[in-house]
C-alpha cells in the first residue's frame, strides 16, 4: 500500500517578484514514472475551516518536481504547502514544507530598463514583470540631483514618456519595482543617462 512510497523531501518555496514556485526532491522508483500532487492551506483554512487543504490549480499528478503556486498564494497571509508522490494506485504520505510561506517575503529585483532620448523627449522602456508589479521611475537633469522627479508606472505598455529635455542636456533615470499588495519595493536599478539632441551653445 501507501507505505512503499516515501514522502517527498526538501520541500521549499522559491519566490521572486511575486511569482512563487514550490520545489521538492524527486522520489525515485526504478523503471517507473512517479507523479506528484500539491495542496495548500491558508491561514483561513487553519483557523476557520478545520485545517482543510486545497488542491493547487496546476499540480495534480504532475511528473515535475516544481509547481507554480502563484495563483494559489493569492492573499498576504501565512500558507502551508504539502506534496505527495503517486505511482498508480499507490500514494506516499504527505510531505509538508517546514514552516509557512507568506508572499510578503518574496524577493524583489530592480526592473530592467532602458533610457532613450528621442529628439527632445526623455523616454524609458521597462521590461514587463507581471500584473502584480508596478514601477517607480525617478528622473532628473544631470547636475540637478536635488530636483528629482518621479513617475509611477502601473501598466507596462511599451515606452513611457518622462519629460521634454532641454537641447543638449543630459538626463538620468533609475527605477525600482513596487508591490502594492505587500507594500514593499526593490532596490533601485543602476542609473542610466542620455543626452538630448541639439547642442548646448549659448546664443549671444
Amino acid at each position: 500500500g501507501d507505505a512503499l512510497l516515501p514522502a517527498p523531501q526538501s520541500i521549499s518555496v522559491l519566490s521572486t517578484n511575486m511569482k512563487h514556485f514550490l520545489t521538492w526532491s524527486p522520489v525515485i522508483v526504478q523503471g517507473a514514472t512517479v507523479r506528484y500532487s500539491v495542496e495548500f492551506q491558508g491561514e483561513y483554512e487553519r483557523e476557520y475551516a478545520n485545517g482543510s487543504w486545497i488542491p493547487t490549480s496546476e499540480c495534480s499528478l504532475t511528473t515535475a518536481t516544481v509547481c507554480n503556486i502563484t495563483e494559489d498564494i493569492s492573499a498576504t497571509v501565512a500558507y502551508r504547502l504539502r506534496v505527495r508522490a503517486e505511482l498508480g494506485a499507490t500514494r506516499s504520505p504527505w510531505g509538508t514544507m517546514k514552516g509557512f510561506f507568506n508572499r510578503a517575503t518574496t524577493s524583489l529585483t530592480p526592473p530592467l530598463l532602458r533610457a532613450l532620448a528621442d529628439g527632445h523627449h526623455l523616454l524609458v522602456e521597462l521590461a514587463d514583470m507581471g500584473p502584480t508589479l508596478q514601477f517607480q521611475v525617478l528622473y532628473w537633469r544631470k547636475g540637478q540631483e536635488s530636483r528629482v522627479r518621479q513617475k509611477v508606472v502601473r501598466e507596462v505598455s511599451s515606452v513611457v514618456h518622462l519629460d521634454t529635455m532641454e537641447a543638449g542636456a543630459e538626463y538620468c533615470v533609475k527605477a525600482q519595482t513596487h508591490v502594492e499588495a505587500i507594500n514593499r519595493s526593490s532596490s533601485f536599478s543602476p542609473t542610466q543617462c542620455v543626452r538630448a539632441q541639439g547642442d548646448t551653445s549659448v546664443w549671444l
Partner: peptide
C-alpha cells in the same frame, strides 16, 4: 470554486 473562495477568505482575514 473552492480555490477562489479560499483566496477571498484569506484576503478577508488579512
Amino acid at each position: 470554486v473552492n480555490r477562489k473562495i479560499s483566496s477571498i477568505a484569506n484576503s478577508f482575514l488579512s
